[in-house]
């Protein structure tokens, strides 16, 4: 685990040296998991409620390296979540762009998206299953449904909240609507759009897994449920950890995209990109000061 900046949640915690910090983290970890392990082993905690950490770890090891049973479930779940994400984001952003361009659409159609959003998406699961069946399409549909709103509202907000002076600058330069959209609106909105995509990613995974809980023959969600029905708690917990891993890998992917795309928001990245653009320019145009 990484530290949260010392001026954030950890404000007021005494600053320790790096070695002391590592020790402190190690100690907390040991107390937490050691206590849990001991409690389990000595029968204070019922294995049927909370299996020992080592049992869960062993189960994970088995799934990944002995039977390899997890891979198919992993892949299918990631596939469903990703497809749902792509579809949900496309619809959300498509609607947002339409609403940003057309005031009429914004006024008369966009309110439905808001009503839609305040309806808990998860509650629609039975309908989704009824409409799309028990296969992967219902998982994708629910994932798309749950994740469509953040990209919609963020994209719309981003496209409409452009600095007034920037808009006047583009107008005074005789810009077309299309140029304004491409060169001003979209890049200005990118940070908030990407924030929306991060939320959508989490939503897509939740949607997929909930749909799998309802009905599925494959996927980490149904795997977990099967374990739980058989009172196989270490298996269930192992499946939960796999879900965390999925969430973590998708989250990391989004962070990477943020890092790459929004270079102008980080000083180290600006230096990198600036050097790159300079090289490109000099290659293309030569050193103009010499001419």
């Amino acid at each position: 685990m990484s530290d949260i900046g010392s001026d954030g949640v950890l404000a007021g915690v005494k600053e320790l040296s790096p070695v002391q910090k590592t020790l402190a983290h190690g100690l907390v970890f040991l107390v937490l998991f050691g206590g849990w392990e001991l409690g389990s082993r000595m029968g204070y905690v019922n294995e049927l409620i909370m299996p020992a950490p080592t049992s869960i770890a062993y189960r994970l090891y088995e799934m990944f390296f002995v039977t390899g049973s997890i891979y198919w479930h992993y892949i299918i779940t990631m596939y469903e979540a990703t497809m749902g994400f792509i579809i949900g984001v496309s619809i959300g952003m498509g609607l947002a762009i339409t609403a940003a361009i057309s005031p009429v659409f914004r006024r008369y159609w966009a309110p439905y998206a808001v009503v839609f959003n305040v309806t808990p998406g998860i509650a629609v699961t039975p309908f989704i299953i009824a409409w799309f069946g028990f296969g992967w399409s219902s998982k994708i549909a629910l994932a798309a449904l749950v994740c469509f709103f953040p990209p919609f509202i963020n994209t719309l907000t981003g496209l409409l909240n452009i600095d007034k002076d920037a808009t006047e600058l583009f107008r005074s330069l005789g810009s077309t609507k299309k140029q304004y959209f491409q060169k001003c609106q979209i890049p200005s909105a990118l940070p908030i759009i990407i924030a929306g995509l991060k939320l959508a990613m989490t939503g897509a995974l939740i949607g997929t897994i909930v749909a799998q809980f309802f009905s599925a023959s494959e996927g980490v969600g149904i795997l977990m449920q099967r374990f739980a029905f058989r009172l196989n708690m270490d298996g269930s917990f192992a499946a939960l950890i796999v879900m965390s891993l999925m969430g973590l890998s998708l989250f990391t992917l989004m962070e990477y995209m943020d890092y790459k795309v929004l270079y102008w928001r980080r000083h180290s990245r600006m230096e990198e990109v600036s050097a790159k653009r300079k090289k490109q320019w000099l290659k293309q145009n030569g050193d103009m000061s010499q001419a």
Binding site: D165, L169, S175, K183, P187, R277
Partner: peptide
């Protein structure tokens, strides 16, 4: 026109900002 704020596009280098009128 020029305003109290510079109104530069943050994602563009100085030279790219200066070239905006020609791009448009």
């Amino acid at each position: 026109m020029m305003f109290q704020k510079a109104v530069l596009l943050d994602w563009r280098t100085s030279i790219e900002n200066v070239l905006l009128p020609d791009e448009i």
